[in-house]
Design a protein around this nucleic acid. Structure first.
Lengths: 204, 204, 204, 204
DNA sequence: TATGAATGAGCTTTCATTCAT
DNA sequence: GATGAATGAAAGCTCATTCAT
């Protein structure tokens, strides 16, 4: 008996879109609090005020839902990070402020569902699809950094802009996580200060 | 889920110790290949050539086994990292070589069961016990860095040695992971070169 | 499972009758390819280009639809089998031709949706309603055979016309199925030849 | 996460063999009364006085269990059918008795779990594995018939022994089923009488 | 002490059917 | 009338863990 090609409902009407949104919201909450493996589909459905049947008509399975929650989360992150115009900051002498502002923006973005972010980070180590989404996201940010560095090429010490972007991004990411996700023994402000100093000395 | 107050045998005889070791080895392999959630206890027992009953007389439960595999893994890491005496490297002028050597040592350590390392890293995001072990490990490394930096205090730019250690460690960790665990788009050598440069410029 | 006393619409207008027909056609195709249990109502509705709501306004439930498909199928069978006038064939000396013609007609009838026929045959073993329909159909054929045999009473060896009809019908049915539904190891023509011979020797 | 290669337990100890046997017995009863699709695995387990976990450690899934029940059933059939030596029956003049005895033996065999037999017959129309088992069984019987007919070659009318075996077997099977599984309108004795007569007239 | 048969809560998923719009 | 979103009982199956032998 071949499997009937189960179609996932793509909601076009207002009601359907709301329902799907409710499920995503409920799922984000539960995944944040109890993790992906600690949350089951029935819970999600009932937290969304929806039957388990509806759940499975909107999502292929629990993993597919997780990926959608993640995409949704990333969309908001992107908006927060790229939303702010750092337009005029590149003028000579403003390097320190520029880097600080990058760091602050990045840190602030992590205040958006930090618990879900944590769970998603964890899953990237074990799930290829989650990893792929993270890579894409990271690619976006790296590309931006690279083009930023390119516009200030002559003021930057290294010639290897790509590697510079990667290294700076790594340093930044891990510091953010140690602050926002794991409670670092060293307080946030001191870390940011040193991080900023490190990046500036390195780049300029 | 509730914990039975079952007695876990602590093997004192040679045979028991070997058996336990065999289970840990088998588990490391399976956890590496299939992840913690993708591996079941029966598989582990039979890969270790042990009955499921024996398995549970050596380990409280699957999670406890994971923690032991992790501790064992960390022990080896520690040995690899701290084993090398970086004794004489602190002489004036040798800073660059010193940092390079630190980085190389750290990178090399990650060639020890990188797949298991990856899994353990992932689990630290969702399991408090795993997180605690990571913290302890990290604490060890940070302490070492701090004391290292202290011995070269006057040659180091920042006064906030603790934060410096944390930031350097973060940068290092994430770069290592992007190389050893996720395939970075930028080749290893270029990343190491920039990382080393960044740390040196920052510190000295 | 309990039957709601939902009203099933009996379509009287052209459009309704066509819709119902489309559903029956679509269902026959799906039941043939995937079996009754392997086909779900949504599939049927969408294959018929009809909403699931409409589907349930035409048919009490999936089983009721199956029964209608079966009745429809049997109606065509009946037409094919009884449509041909075997009128003049009873003249003395023509017995062999007569039996051959009966067999050929019966075989030909099975070329009508043989896959659906197969499914319906299977379901008669597990569903009383399907069994009842089969019995009625069989009754029709047996009655016809009995009356046929009666008209040639004095040329027939046995006095027990009813049992003769039943036995001949059984032999015929199973041979047809082994040819048309299961691929017999012995080729069709040889089987027909022997079947015809067996029936003739027996009857005349 | 690839599926762990679930091993089906092959019981070697007395207890395990008994348990498996109990499940098979219970399943035969339930399949007979409620059919394959009408019976669920939990019911079977509890009817066998066994946990659902045990059930699945002995059988890959419900279908696999059905196939084992069927094989078991067929084994007994075979014993019943081939157990009786029809050795001396081939002497000249004994043809009628010989055929009668074959028919009686076949009929008697069907008194073994006729309801399960019915279900299995039904499933052969929809399940390829069940069909294959039926074919093998049928092959065994046909081969026996062919070799039987060969030993009495010169007394038999037809030269096409294989087709003869097939046709005779078909007639027999369907008559048995109409008697033992569906209640025929014509009483058993009359059917047997005519069937025997038909086969004898045809063969000799 | 070692074994592996047995357990059963709990998970994911399906699908016939209803009913508000 | 027609629609298709929503329902939820019920199915199949897994696996960490226990415990009688």
């Amino acid at each position: 008996m071949e499997r009937a090609n189960r179609k996932v409902r793509i909601p076009r009407q207002k009601r359907g879109i709301e329902t799907k949104g409710r499920i995503i919201q409920a799922a984000r909450g539960l995944f944040s609090r109890k993790g992906f493996h600690g949350t089951n589909s029935k819970e999600i459905a009932s937290a969304a005020g929806v039957s388990i049947g509806s759940f499975y008509s909107y999502f292929q399975d629990k993993k597919a839902l997780f990926l959608e929650v993640l995409e949704d989360h990333n969309d908001r992150l992107i908006k927060k990070i790229f939303g702010q115009g750092q337009g005029g900051l590149l003028e000579p002498g403003g390097e320190k402020e520029f880097i600080d502002s990058l760091i602050r923006t990045g840190m602030a973005a992590h205040d958006l569902s930090p618990q879900f972010h944590r769970e998603a980070l964890g899953m990237k180590y074990s799930d290829p699809d989650v990893e792929a989404i993270h890579r894409r996201m990271e690619g976006l940010v790296l590309d931006r950094l690279v083009s930023l560095f390119n516009t200030m090429r002559e003021r930057i010490r290294t010639k290897d802009v790509e590697a510079a972007a990667a290294v700076v991004y790594c340093a930044f990411e891990e510091v953010v996580h140690s602050v926002k996700i794991f409670e670092s023994r060293v307080p946030e402000e001191r870390l940011i200060h040193e991080l900023s100093d490190m990046i500036c000395r390195y780049l300029f």
